[in-house]
């Protein structure tokens, strides 16, 4: 575990906590894309299936449980919570996210480390995570007023993968040259998608 990766995980955790705070404190999910939240839930479920089979560390297991339960809780709130669900911008959140799931799945079938169920699920989760933010970014561009918490949520979410890229660079020079092109390329695409958001976020 290096500082970049730890910073990345903490930034990721913080982004989820900011979103939970926004929904809990304001009892509103206006400006939040439910589709992006559903995609993240699929990402975590597909990637953290090894939660019960491979024990890596307490930290690793705890964080996996936190990410799975928090993403499920957010989706539940946006679908079932009587007050919150009313504030969901259904007609604004129109991105066809099924296309993203299908594309990521096809890519995972073609490009993976090994053609095994677990490796294909892992690659699927990496590809899907790279594009999962798209519905949210589209919603932000449509939405007139982006409230601070939602903006901060997206900012931390974009920053976390940038830290991971630094982590991969660090590991490349310290642990030898693993082939991690799936993570590399997806991480670059993922962070790149935030470029215009970061541009406007800092200009505002």
């Amino acid at each position: 575990m290096n500082a970049f990766r730890f910073l990345g995980d903490m930034t990721h955790l913080f982004s989820v906590l900011v979103l939970l705070l926004k929904i809990y404190a304001t009892k509103s999910c206006s400006g939040v894309s439910r589709k992006t939240q559903e995609l993240y839930m699929v990402v975590f479920l597909a990637r953290y299936m090894d939660l019960f089979t491979d024990y890596i560390s307490l930290y690793n297991s705890v964080m996996k449980v936190v990410f799975i339960t928090s993403s499920a809780a957010i989706v539940w709130c946006m679908r079932r919570h009587p007050q919150v669900r009313r504030t969901y911008d259904k007609e604004q959140d129109t991105f066809r996210h099924v296309v993203l799931v299908a594309a990521a799945f096809v890519l995972a079938l073609i490009f993976n480390e090994r053609f095994t169920f677990r490796e294909i699920c892992w690659a699927f989760s990496i590809y899907l995570e790279a594009v999962a933010i798209l519905p949210q970014l589209v919603l932000l561009q449509r939405g007139r007023n982006v409230d601070n918490l939602t903006g901060q949520y997206v900012f931390f979410l974009g920053a976390y993968r940038a830290f991971y890229i630094l982590n991969w660079i660090y590991r490349y020079f310290t642990e030898g040259h693993h082939s991690r092109w799936i993570s590399w390329l997806s991480g670059l695409v993922q962070t790149g998608l935030y470029a215009d958001f970061f541009y406007y976020y800092f200009l505002r």
Binding site: K64, W122, R180
Partner: peptide, 10 residues
């Protein structure tokens, strides 16, 4: 093998 490493990342 290479892919064992990245399973230690979240």
């Amino acid at each position: 093998e290479t892919s064992s490493y990245d399973k230690d990342e979240l």
